[in-house]
Write a protein that binds this DNA or RNA. Structure first.
Lengths: 280, 280
DNA sequence: ATGATTATGGAACAAATGTTCCGTCTTATT
DNA sequence: AATAAGACGGAACATTTGTTCCATAATCAT
């Protein structure tokens, strides 16, 4: 008969595993890690398939389950299955349930709910507005650039640092203009019309981003902009520009939509570069 | 060999079953009805348990699957299982198939769709998992700190720069540890137990973030961590830590959930500081 | 009503399953 | 260093599994 105190729900099981993990011997730790990282495999797999994937012997899985107090692996597996049995709501219903959960949870929960809601709304708005042809054109522009100059300061700095990181991973040459040591102008002084400026700024439009971009545009360097209005100072000088509306909560605007667009641009650029290389 | 046109996703399978139902003989109709009303049982059950529950013979289940074009019942079952597996994983698989078809055309719209979906999924997961009490406790910890040391490098750097920007706007003292000029250790050398370290790192865990945080923790500076696993090196040293799972697309993880949490923490900290000031 | 076709139930079967047990290796204790 | 305890891998095993096959029953067509 099963130990009566053994968790029957996934959350409690997960807590138990984490608590016990520090004391597990090597192979049991390996199973614990695999199980928490691949719960679906535990739910649907057999002892044999899971053991193979986790690189342990089948009996180790049984020992793992028994060390937690279950009679055998099958009993443990049922808890992983129970985690999935709750997934009967469609996405909208589930989202509403989640919103209610976070709403009913005090001030911090309300703050989180507000920001999460703003992020979701911003993503939805961008989905509606984004023109794939514009994406294609921007990716092409970036793919053909010798060097991409990333300009985004203050609130937009996370966007440009993210893109620097991602371009770095993708082997795409960039210069991150960070105004460090007051050297922004020097950073950009080598830009030529064979390069591209990618400038990110939102109301109230960081003045340094704007003036650097205008200077470069005046020198014939093509500008790609991410901004929030047709009246943005960047819109008039940019060859291509994206309008991103970020929803506001508590005086702080979301950045989820901008970041998602940034990710898209970096990967689309890499893909376009690969495509151009193939066509040669 | 399986009929190539057989549905691999649940929605298409359900459509097929509904279309064919009118032509099914009695027992197959019975199975069809039971399957659509109890999809979880089909996903997790065995031929024997399902047959019993549906009040048919086991071979009837096999016949049902074969009448739909599957080789056997196990193949049909996998479609029911796919319905329950991680949504983003299915989404990725579907997109991978689409990419197969569109490999020479580099569809930027699909890339955006993938990243937007990953962001939404990440937000939903965080809504589900976030413990408001933990938020409250973290905000209290940050509100009482003399100085907040923000450590987040490489991929996590946008998070710490965002928080630096937001804390700045809110008049909350911080030090942004950016490893500039190799001075990360010096940046943090003034931290005392009256301060707080806010460290952000995800698999594969930027080694500098980890070692700095461990050093500070060893000196009695409380650590608040944002990371992605109970096995993260930060989890064991943090007084409070948040687990954030970011969905992956094209080898790049979303950052929407992490950013939303960061925004929440900054605003909740400001609010808690105001509350503490009122109580004096 | 008769014959042909289809549907059904269930036995047989090979393969897969989860579990137990135990010899050997590893780690901890004295 | 010796001994005891714990961890591990893997063989053995009884049970369960999904599938195939076929005799019989039910349904359909003439």
């Amino acid at each position: 008969m099963t130990d009566a105190s053994v968790p029957q729900d996934f959350a409690a099981l997960r807590t138990l595993i984490v608590e016990r993990a520090a004391d597990f011997p090597r192979r049991l730790t390996q199973v614990a890690t695999y199980a928490l990282e691949n719960p679906d495999d535990i739910a649907f797999g057999t002892v044999a398939t899971i053991a193979q994937a986790a690189e342990v012997q089948p009996s180790t899985l049984v020992r793992f389950a028994q060390s937690l107090g279950y009679q055998g692996f099958s009993e443990l597996q049922e808890v992983f299955q129970s985690r999935l049995r709750d997934r009967v709501l469609n996405y909208d219903e589930r989202l509403e349930q989640l919103r209610e959960h976070t709403r009913n949870s005090g001030k911090s929960g309300l703050i989180f709910d507000g920001f999460a809601g703003a992020a979701e709304q911003s993503l939805a708005t961008l989905r509606e507005k984004l023109d794939p042809e514009q994406l294609r054109s921007a990716a092409d522009m970036l793919a053909r650039a010798d060097t991409i100059y990333l300009i985004g300061l203050r609130r937009s700095f996370p966007i440009s640092t993210y893109m620097a990181y991602a371009f770095g991973k993708l082997g795409i040459r960039y210069v991150l203009v960070d105004a460090l040591g007051g050297l922004a102008a020097e950073d950009t002084s080598f830009a030529t019309p064979r390069d591209v400026v990618l400038a990110v700024t939102f109301t109230p439009y960081a003045s340094e981003t704007v003036s650097l971009s205008q200077k470069l545009s005046g020198r014939g360097v093509p500008v790609l902009a991410i901004t929030d209005s047709p009246f943005s100072p960047l819109a008039s000088i940019a060859q291509t520009w994206f309008e991103v509306q970020e929803a506001n909560f508590e005086g702080f605007r979301s950045m989820a939509a901008t970041l998602t667009l940034a990710m898209t641009l970096t990967v689309a650029t890499a893909e376009r570069r690969a495509s151009l290389a193939r066509d040669k």
